[in-house]
Amino acid sequence: MTRAETRRTTARRAQLFDQLVELFLAEGFAHLTLDDVAARLHCSKSTLYALAENKDRLVYAVTVHFFRGATERVEAELARGEGAEARIRTYLEAVGRQLEPASARFMEDIARTPVAREVYERNTRMAADRVRMLISEGVESGDLRDVHAAFAADVVASVMVRIQQRQVAEATGLADAQAYRELAALLTRGLTA
């Protein structure tokens, strides 16, 4: 295969994953068969099998693709923020914005599907660790009051896990994106020096 062919194949795979993310975010995925997905994307099932060997692996790969792109966009937003409070707020609000296109059905499907839930849980742990780093940096710089960064991050992680597990939505009626905005407001106002 030539380099040009490899680039075209890679671009086509990325395009298919983007289309799959868009479809899954809008409608969920648990109810869709591979035949449904192929018809919706105007491709063959063999094209889908080239992406993953079965529906579970496809759901896993699409979920990874979604969270990888979301992480890149969140980090790009974070890079523009200045000051510890603004960076924490920017980070959590950006996470929320990345979840805004996700339908309730998509979030429920993730919560009920082990391969997708595992990806969301791993990304939630990484996000909580990122918040802990931002808090630590803010305390060290004096931008934030002297709090125990690991404790504050643990509290944030607990809420993030509850958001991910749909417990916040059930208890409050808040969509995940809105819950992240509320968490950002609560956290940054409570940490301000």
Rank of each mutant, 00 (worst) to 15 (best):
D18V: 05
Q165W: 00
R73C: 00
R87C: 13
R8V: 07
Q164E: 12
K55M: 06
Y120L: 15
V115I: 09
R57W: 13
R13V: 03
G69F: 00
F67V: 06
G28S: 06
Q15P: 05
F67A: 09
R162P: 01
D109L: 00
T10R: 14
L32I: 02
L144F: 07
V131Q: 04
V147A: 08
T47K: 12
E5K: 12
Y180L: 10
R7A: 13
R105D: 14
I163H: 08
V64A: 07
T172V: 04
R125S: 02
E182K: 14
Q178T: 13
Y60F: 13
A70V: 05
M133G: 10
R181A: 10
V159S: 07
D56L: 10
V64P: 03
A4M: 06
E137H: 09
L99K: 05
R8T: 13
L92H: 00
L58W: 00
G96H: 11
E170P: 02
E100H: 09
T71W: 02
F29H: 01
V64M: 07
R117C: 02
C43D: 10
T10L: 14
Q98M: 11
V64W: 01
D154I: 03
F66L: 05
A116P: 04
A52H: 06
E82G: 08
L58F: 02
Y91P: 00
I88F: 02
A50M: 03
E72Y: 00
E182H: 08
M133R: 15
V74H: 00
D18H: 06
R68P: 05
L187S: 13
A11Y: 05
A30D: 15
